[in-house]
């Protein structure tokens, strides 16, 4: 009884855009115009969605259970911060550098991590996030150590748009980058490459038996996921002009897992719903009573594993199916 993942797309399906897939974007644009005071929180949600989406690629579709994905988010965040402080403040250039660096880091570490499975893989990824944390914590002259890097300089976007106080530019910037990442992931999981990732997730031995280079494919996906996570981290640095140790903790690895599972694993849009619900709920509840918020998340997680294995979107699927059956 594996965690219910989204329906596989594969060779029988169509990749045409369903109208419902435009909902997140319509919602984001509505927030931009109707709720301007939520833009900073909104930008943060968009960043975490991109991070969750990158995890969905390797965990939901690739079936690689990792505890270390925050390592790449944090790596990208620090690369963007250090690059802006020491080299150049152009945001797009910084984003590209963070993406390239995270991809290289992801390829190098993935080449090692993906040789193992199960427990060893969990441990290696956990060790990885701990190593990145220690480097960020102790290499003070570059990373700022426990204080982090404050007032990271960020230039104008495309040389024309300033990052304003109200977070308008930041929000649209994050939205555009997320849209690009979404399109990339969506195309990938609909492609033969994505189908073969799912095949390896479902039955790795058989993928070998049909002659598929499983390791190489998984490494490709892992590298791309690392790059996307790094981009998300870089966005966080640029939009908050700060980077600190919280971007690379094991807790963050756990939290992003929780958010993805809350939304639904292996369905792309679970990565949209989960972080939105989680972060908005935290924004309200955690201020009132942080203890009960943590308690609630824990209980919720246990309930999801025990009863609602498809997350929010899985529940929605179930309700929709029942509704269709009751109205033939």
């Amino acid at each position: 009884m594996p965690l219910a993942r989204g329906p596989a797309i594969g060779y029988g399906g169509s990749a045409r855009l369903h109208p419902a897939e435009l909902l997140p974007w319509a919602f984001a644009i509505a927030v931009y115009f109707l709720a301007p005071s939520y833009l900073p929180l909104g930008a943060y949600v968009l960043i975490i969605i991109l991070f969750a989406l990158s995890l969905d690629l390797i965990l939901g579709y690739g079936g690689i259970v990792t505890l270390g994905h925050a390592a790449y988010f944090g790596f990208g965040a620090y690369v963007a911060g250090v690059f802006a402080v020491r080299v150049h403040g152009d945001p797009l250039l910084g984003l590209a550098v963070a993406a390239a660096a995270s991809a290289a880091f992801g390829a190098a570490t993935g080449a090692v991590v993906l040789r193992t499975r199960a427990l060893a893989l969990l441990m290696l990824t956990l060790a990885l996030v701990s190593i990145v944390f220690e480097v960020a914590n102790k290499w003070t002259e570059v990373t700022g150590g426990a204080d982090g890097l404050n007032s990271v300089p960020v230039g104008q976007l495309l040389g024309a748009f300033r990052f304003d106080l109200f977070g308008k530019t930041a929000f649209l910037y994050c939205l555009a980058v997320l849209a690009a990442g979404w399109w990339l992931v969506r195309s990938l999981v609909h492609s033969p490459f994505g189908a073969s990732l799912v095949g390896a997730r479902e039955n790795e031995a058989r993928m070998h038996a049909i002659g598929a280079p499983v390791y190489a494919r998984q490494l490709c996906a892992y590298t791309l996921a690392a790059a996307l996570a790094g981009v998300a981290g870089a966005l966080l640095t640029q939009t908050t002009q700060f980077v600190g140790l919280s971007v690379v903790s094991f807790e963050l690895s756990g939290e992003i897992l929780v958010m993805l599972v809350l939304g639904g694993v292996g369905r792309i849009y679970g990565a949209f719903v989960g972080p939105l619900v989680f972060i908005v709920a935290r924004d309200y509840l955690a201020k009132q009573s942080p203890e009960y918020w943590v308690l609630g998340i824990g209980v919720l997680l246990i309930l999801i594993v025990m009863f609602a294995r498809g997350g929010i979107l899985g529940l929605a699927d179930g309700i929709a199916a029942r509704w269709r059956r009751s109205r033939p």
């Binding site: 990749a15 492609s191 189908a195 073969s196 039955n203």
Partner: peptide
């Protein structure tokens, strides 16, 4: 591949044989 459709089971193999199993852009369908 128990959770996948019968078509996908066969198509995964056919795609590998034809050398398109790693194509990453166009939709599988």
């Amino acid at each position: 591949f128990g959770a996948l459709s019968v078509l996908d089971n066969v198509a995964l193999g056919v795609a590998e044989r034809r050398g398109v199993g790693g194509r990453a852009w166009r939709a599988a369908g």
